[in-house]
Simulated scan of single mutants.
Amino acid sequence: MVAVGVSACGSSSGSGGATAVKFQLNFVPYGGDAPIYLAVERGYYRDEGLDVTILPGKTGVETISAVANGQVDFGTAPDSQVISAAGQGATVVSVGNRFAAPAVGVIVDSRLQVNGLADLAGKRILSSSPVYAELLKSSMRAAGVDPGSVELVTVNGPALLSTYAGGEGEGLVTSVPFALPVVSPQRESDVVSLVDYGVTIPEFSFIANPAFVDSKAETGRKFLSATYRGMDAAMRDPQAAIDALMAAVPGIDEQAAMGQMLAYGQAQCSSGTNGKTVAYQDLDAWKSGYTQMMEIGAAEAGVDISRLVTNEFQDATSTSCPTSWSK
């Protein structure tokens, strides 16, 4: 069963005696979520004895809160927000990698011929994320560029991409795999990756409540196994994944969704996860990212990354990094 936009609480057992599981996305469904919908369509969760309900999110913060409060069993959210929320007392644990490579960057109008952060001086850069805005400032300082030379303009999250695509500002700082496929058809753009300036925070992971993991570890393993099976199938047949997404969520732009899925697929692995399964999480990258977030005031001291992140379920899949995503 797939429920989109349904928030009713589930029971301990689903249809046909299957175990009911509620999984909340970090946002409304988009291209990066297509492998999850493919896993549902092909019955991978059913094969594991799970009756999965997919709930759309509004923000990663909201999804983290829902997981921490036990309203849903699993969620997915940006790792930067998971770290920040943990410092504020949210009780969650990252149980598996989704996109290990850092993906934050500045998307800029191609006509400006921007080749690096120094070329951003005098430009208006849009942002909907305080963390991303601070990471940009930190990267500029590291590059010897005055952050004050850039005008950062805060835009409400849902309007960020349409505002930039419509011609406002000269660029935006955001998650590049999510945004670039959406804005490029309307406004040809280039990318300045903040990874080139030392940003190391992994992009996304799957999260759960520690109490759920402790009491229902086997359910967690089954959920992740089916989810990674869907990701592997999407890598092998991208169009099937997009078709599954569009069947479940009508109205999605097919071209943008395909671009998002392939771009995030290329961020599935990192140098720190190569040779490991795609579920494996690079603790050193998490620790480095946490340090960077404390330096910019986006995370509190005292977060124990070894407790926030677990590799208990890295054997939920046999697919190893690096992976190869292409249309």
Score class of each variant (00 low, 15 high):
residue 219 T to C: 08
residue 297 G to K: 09
residue 291 T to D: 11
residue 207 I to E: 01
residue 198 G to D: 03
residue 185 P to L: 01
residue 304 D to T: 13
residue 99 F to V: 00
residue 9 C to S: 09
residue 24 Q to M: 14
residue 80 S to T: 12
residue 253 D to E: 11
residue 179 A to E: 04
residue 26 N to Q: 10
residue 292 Q to A: 02
residue 281 Q to M: 14
residue 7 S to G: 15
residue 262 L to Q: 06
residue 232 D to I: 14
residue 173 V to G: 04
residue 46 R to W: 07
residue 137 K to R: 15
residue 169 G to P: 04
residue 85 A to Y: 01
residue 184 S to E: 07
residue 146 D to Q: 08
residue 116 G to Y: 07
residue 87 G to N: 07
residue 47 D to Q: 15
residue 284 D to R: 14
residue 69 N to F: 08
residue 204 F to W: 06
residue 199 V to R: 08
residue 27 F to W: 12
residue 103 A to N: 13
residue 192 V to H: 00
residue 296 I to P: 14
residue 134 E to K: 15
residue 69 N to K: 15
residue 210 P to I: 14
residue 135 L to Y: 11
residue 200 T to M: 06
residue 3 A to S: 15
residue 57 G to T: 03
residue 208 A to L: 10
residue 114 V to T: 10
residue 18 A to M: 09
residue 210 P to L: 14
residue 37 Y to H: 09
residue 229 R to T: 05
residue 322 P to G: 12
residue 252 I to T: 13
residue 154 T to W: 12
residue 56 P to M: 02
residue 3 A to E: 15
residue 239 Q to T: 12
residue 27 F to D: 12
residue 22 K to A: 13
residue 234 A to L: 03
residue 252 I to N: 05
residue 144 G to Q: 04
residue 53 T to M: 09
residue 92 V to K: 00
residue 21 V to P: 03
residue 41 E to T: 15
residue 295 E to L: 12
